[in-house]
Amino acid sequence: MTGVLRRLGLALGLPIVLLAAWWFASANSTDFFFPPLSEILQSLVEEWFGPRLAADVVPSVLRLAAGYALAVVVSISLGVLIGTSRTVRGLLEPVLEFFRAIPPPVLVPIFMLLFGIGDGMKVVVIAFGCMWPILLNTVEGVRAVDTVLSDTARTYGITGAARLRTLVLPAASPQIFAGLRQGLSVAIILMVISELFAASNGLGFAVVQAQRSFAIAETWAGMLMLGLLGFLLALLFRVVENRQLRWYHGLRRAQRSS
């Protein structure tokens, strides 16, 4: 019981102190750029969890989900193909490294040329930008499948689709998840950026609108909303990852303690 309380105290202590500090420091703030936290929170609840939730937050999240899902499917399939063949890997690795090194937001102007300014463009921007870390990590994970494990599978006649399902994908999954995690943060960034350029709704669009019209409390609240979204997605990701990689974390612990 005391253990739980202690953990709770440790987890909540600093955030409470920080929030309280912000609250009191800004309480009587007359600084135009730093409105009182109470105003920001009010705006967060009234605006962002009010009408803007359906109007802006949901469309953003849907585009994010579509783009990310597209990237995941394409990159993992391509990654398996590329990772399996030494020759293909050799041919494509520098090309992929180059594409990965391009800061994804610079693609927004180009994709606007190609795909216009609709939802399609935003989904493609998100997908194209976040696919490289996923793709390269999948390639690396597939390449590094343990040789003994691979021999074992061969001697038991595990080939083709079964090999992919029972050996290659699970073996590469720690790497793939590392890529997926990086890809997710890139995807969130691109969700916002793609809405800054050409959009009529969305979180990024609304925050910048607020900023341009000098609705300062709403701008701060929008930033909090973005932070909250990032945090929640990271949390969700962690839950999925912990489920899928339970074996891996267990294996690592076992190796470290031995």
Binding site: R100, P174, A178, R238
Partner: peptide, 15 residues
């Protein structure tokens, strides 16, 4: 979170 967070982008093979 777990070890994969330390995995570099290029990544070192876990095994």
């Amino acid at each position: 979170s777990g070890p994969p967070a330390v995995v570099s982008p290029a990544g070192s093979p876990p095994v």
